[in-house]
Design a protein around this nucleic acid. Structure first.
Length: 363
RNA sequence: GGUGGGGUUCCCGAGCGGUCAAAGGGGGCAGACUGUAAAUCUGCUGCGGUAGCUUCGGUGGUUCAAAUCCACCCCCCACCA
């Protein structure tokens, strides 16, 4: 058993756990920084380690296109290629079915993509995705799904789910490296019957972990929570649960309360590159704004990160303003610190029986 | 002192009789961003609620109409003495 629930919250479905992978253990609930193209944008592996990142993401679609699998195979896998020695989770390309919707055609056995780089056509299906992720050598492999857009009619969602379910069965039957764990992805858009149907059929196939996909794609927040309420109870207690693509601090806390163990989101890194920083209360401030030009206080007085101990809003605002890369790097560092630290707080709160109190802070 | 080139909305800068409240940058302001086609993208940026009003160094003038033409004046820059 590679996942172990260690503490359960008495007042919600929140729980602590430890997930064991070939490249180390992961403490859940956890936030996983997104490193789509083999790097968490603007961060080095050393910095990620310093931040306390325990696992990062990589992306099948993007790494397959560049540098391509021949290079990755020659390099000896993504870990060796990138110098990140801790666990890696790779997304299957299913999100690109959604985000690059204009550049692809759905086929029964997968997706015909037109590369967003040069337009060249290539095929990515469940089989291909598994083969690529096997070569990437990630610790956690995601099933190839179709991330449904929002809004999506019941009819379309049902049709999409049927395809996704079929694909996921193919994924399960495709051989991976011995120690790789394949996570299934529940879809079904915002419909209770579909979400339940999806969860149940995937649980029957018995995967090492379960993800909830197709959320945080523009639906109202309450609807996202509702979907979790419909889905999570149908997932096995003993397996890790991963809410894909989420979220804002508040959303993470709410999902933890509903029993989710794993999160990833580009928000901290992207907002950083767009000049915004997270504050202790989960809100953001646009550090790049002129009003911070002479604000010599740190981004957040309450933050203990290296950036907040040393640099002022004014300096960071200046760097961003003149286009110095360092500005984006410092903001990325701070934002990731905030997310990683929030998860640590959540874990400690669960152990201390004070998760409800923490949850109140974000309401 | 002479010759030539200039002074445009917060800044730079285009415009050179009407279609100009004035291109384009910069800056400023506001917003978006959730398994990354994103160090990106969108909108606003003279005043006013529309009608309209006040702007293009200053003052006068020509014209139905001027940032654009003319006269004088004030500044700036380059070269020559």
């Amino acid at each position: 058993m590679s996942f172990q629930v260690t503490v359960k919250d008495g007042y919600s479905a929140a729980r602590r756990g430890v997930l064991t992978t070939p490249h180390g253990k992961i403490n859940t609930p956890i936030f996983m920084p997104v490193g789509t193209r083999g790097a968490v944008k603007a961060m080095s592996p050393e910095e990620l380690e310093e931040l306390g990142a325990e696992i990062i993401l990589g992306n099948t679609y993007h790494l397959f296109l560049r540098p391509g699998m021949e290079i990755i195979r020659k390099a000896g896998g993504l870990h060796r290629f990138s110098g990140w020695e801790k666990p890696i989770l790779t997304d299957s390309g299913g999100f690109q079915v959604f985000s690059l919707a204009q550049l692809r055609k759905l086929k029964p056995d997968g997706v015909e993509f037109s590369s967003h780089i040069d337009g060249s056509r290539f095929f990515l299906g469940p089989k291909e995705s598994m083969q690529i992720q096997r070569d990437l050598g990630s610790d956690i492999v995601m099933a190839f799904d179709e991330c449904t857009p929002y809004p999506c009619s019941h009819q379309d969602a049902a049709k999409s789910l049927e395809i996704t379910t079929r694909w996921e069965t193919v994924c399960r039957d495709e051989p991976l490296n011995e120690d790789q764990q394949l996570f299934a992805i529940v879809q079904g858009s915002v419909y209770q019957d579909l979400r339940e149907q999806s969860a149940k059929s995937l649980v029957e196939l018995d995967f090492p972990g379960y993800a909830i996909g197709g959320l945080s794609v523009g639906e109202p927040e309450d609807q996202m929570y509702e979907c979790l309420d419909w889905t999570v109870p149908h997932l096995p207690e003993t397996k890790p649960r991963y809410l894909m693509g989420a979220g804002l601090p508040r959303q993470i806390v709410e999902a933890v309360a509903r029993g989710v163990d794993m999160f990833d989101c580009v928000i901290p890194t992207r907002l950083a590159r767009h000049g915004s920083a997270f504050l202790n209360n989960g809100e953001t401030i646009p550090v790049k704004a002129g009003r911070f030009a002479d604000d010599f206080s740190p981004i957040d007085e309450a933050c203990g990160c290296r950036v907040c101990r040393k640099f002022s809003r004014a300096y960071i605002r200046h760097l961003v303003q003149v286009g110095e890369i360092l500005g984006l790097r410092l903001l990325t560092y701070h934002n990731l610190y905030y997310f990683i630290n929030l998860m640590k707080e959540i874990r400690e709160a669960i152990t201390a029986g004070e998760f409800s109190k923490l949850r109140e802070r974000f309401k």
